[in-house]
């Protein structure tokens, strides 16, 4: 790895540490930095502060960290495998699958069970998570099946988008026949948030991601070969069909799990890979993959921080922040880089 790339990685890692600590430090209740530090090491006995830091801020920061990393890696993989800079986790309908799963559970439970899911609390949360994972995986199975049969990447991408439309149509129908409070529960889920994941679930979420993220690194060489196009990649000994499947599967599972826990988080998956390509000026996945992981985690923490800024009081949906803050940043980086390129 080049020295500048190493430096970039280190800077990203430092930014993660800084943003992570700021996430623990800042919020509607002000707690001195020293106290936050000692709470982390179990040395503080102000029970209220302890609760705020350990039960609310820490889970939220951890969720943002792994979710940002996961979505960014998934986005990078999809952009490479579809050779389409606009591909992101939203495409392929994986996220629509998660939406559909949640819609079924939230909107139909009232009709069938007689009680609205929005009333039953924690059980409902788990049910929603499971529904989202199942829905996403079901759609992904469909996509993988199609991928085996279809040759062109564009065709596959279009089919993914079509599946998304169908899922949205079904959701629309479900919404129409559901009681208002269930629709509202679904809409709230649809806003996406790093705050919804509660204490016990965070451990599960982080553990799952701790397995999945390193697994995605196993595809580095495959991704690099895919950059050359099918013909050259194949001539260099890559089994294209299997490679495509592996990459879709990996990024699909990442998106499914993150969406299940956080709801649909937009923008990060699309933007972070572009940001990394611009910053590191490479298309080598040995650099891009770790860079996307770090930058994604860092950006998610920053967005979560802004969503919680004084005045917003946690009321700002994180999706608005990712787009509002992220879009100009990415546009600026890409624009600046274009200028540099033409100046050369």
């Amino acid at each position: 790895m080049k020295r500048s790339a190493t430096l970039g990685m280190v800077l990203l890692a430092v930014s993660i540490l800084v943003f992570f600590f700021l996430n623990l430090l800042l919020g509607s209740v002000s707690i001195p930095a020293g106290k936050v530090w000692s709470i982390l090491w179990g040395g503080e006995d102000n029970a209220i502060w302890q609760n705020i830091v350990l039960k609310s801020r820490l889970p939220q920061a951890l969720t943002a960290l792994v979710a940002g990393a996961g979505l960014s890696i998934a986005g990078l993989q999809m952009q490479t495998v579809f050779r389409n800079p606009l591909a992101g986790p939203t495409e392929l309908g994986v996220r629509s699958g998660a939406r559909l799963g949640v819609a079924f559970v939230v909107l139909l439970s009232g009709r069938i069970g007689g009680i609205a899911l929005s009333r039953i609390g924690a059980m409902g949360e788990v049910a929603m998570t499971l529904a989202a994972i199942l829905g996403a995986l079901a759609i992904m199975a469909l996509i993988v099946y199609v991928a085996q049969r279809v040759r062109g990447n564009v065709t596959l991408l279009i089919i993914g988008v079509m599946i998304g439309y169908v899922a949205n149509a079904i959701i629309g129908v479900l919404k129409f026949f559901s009681p208002e409070e269930d629709v509202r529960a679904y809409v709230v889920w649809g806003l996406g948030s790093f705050a919804r994941v509660s204490g016990g679930q965070v451990t599960t979420f982080v553990c799952i991601m701790a397995v999945l993220l390193p697994l995605s690194f196993l595809l580095v060489k495959t991704l690099n070969l895919l950059l050359l196009g099918d013909g050259y990649a194949r001539n260099l000994g890559l089994n294209i069909r299997r490679a495509r499947m592996q990459v879709i599967l990996c990024s699909g599972v990442l998106v499914a799990v993150v969406t299940a826990y956080c709801g649909p988080i937009s923008f990060l998956g699309l933007a972070v890979p572009h940001l990394c390509r611009a910053i590191f000026r490479t298309s080598d996945h040995r650099i891009l993959l770790p860079a996307s992981l770090l930058a994604g985690a860092s950006l998610a923490l920053l967005c979560n921080l802004i969503a919680r800024m004084p005045g917003f009081e946690g009321a700002l949906p994180v999706n608005s922040v990712t787009a509002l803050i992220g879009a100009p940043v990415v546009a600026w980086v890409l624009f600046k880089k274009r200028k540099e390129d033409t100046a050369e």
């Binding site: 050779r83 950059l227 050359l228 196009g229 013909g231 050259y232 194949r234 001539n235 260099l236 000994g237 890559l238 089994n239 390509r277 000026r281 490479t282 298309s283 080598d284």
Partner: peptide, 21 residues
């Protein structure tokens, strides 16, 4: 596939559209 990649090298008509490599 593996063995073949060490026996045949190709140059194709398709243009590689690579950025930043």
């Amino acid at each position: 596939d593996r063995e073949l990649s060490k026996v045949i090298g190709v140059v194709l008509t398709e243009r590689v559209s690579l950025q930043n490599m």
